[in-house]
Amino acid sequence: MIQLEAIKKQFYIGQPNQLEILHGIDLQVKRGEFVSIVGASGSGKTTFMNIIGILDRATYGTYLLDGIDVTQAKDRELSKIRNEKIGFVFQTYNLIARTNALKNVELPMLYAGVAKKERMERAKELLTLVGMENRMYHTSDELSGGQKQRVAIARALANNPSILLADEPTGALDSETGRKVMDLFQELNREKGITIILITHSTELAEETGRIITLKDGRIIKEHNLRGKE
């Protein structure tokens, strides 16, 4: 499902200040898993996440996503893959300003070319799933942090992605709303079988997931299976 092999990422290639951030990472994530990637800042977490989310390309190594070799794809194809296979949840929510929740959730489907009516129905369905059915027509500045994150999760799920990629999703929330968001992830994983990769620096949150992968200085130093679950 996700297969990363010997991933290396270098910056400033061919220049005197050439820098290698990732030194060969192997990782496999199966369908329905809930994996967390932890690491201190500077461990290469963000770079790794960008590669998983195909916002960036690895310098060396192969990355198979649902059997597609992503490292060979062109920019245009990458947009399409991001659109169809990856759902992003950001620390800062990144809802589109001045746009209501419904339109935000519709956006990935818009880029995928889904018809208007279907788009709206699916968006409503998803907002109901995350418990935002009463706030569908509110714009992002009329929503609280927790509510924004719920909308963002609904948006990430819009095109039935293979992975939900969450980068510090509770980082900007207080512990109570953060808890609720985590519960939502758990529920989505358990009941809907959605694959989730959670990037966090909090070991506490990581311990709730099925598998913890610890990064340090661009290498995986520890893999810890918590649930023994597939």
């Binding site: 991001r82 659109n83 800062t92 990144n94």
Partner: peptide, 18 residues
Amino acid sequence: ERTREIGTRKALGATNQC
């Protein structure tokens, strides 16, 4: 002003043309 929005849109699958 909207650089972040553009980044988000790209992450959500918007192509350069979009």
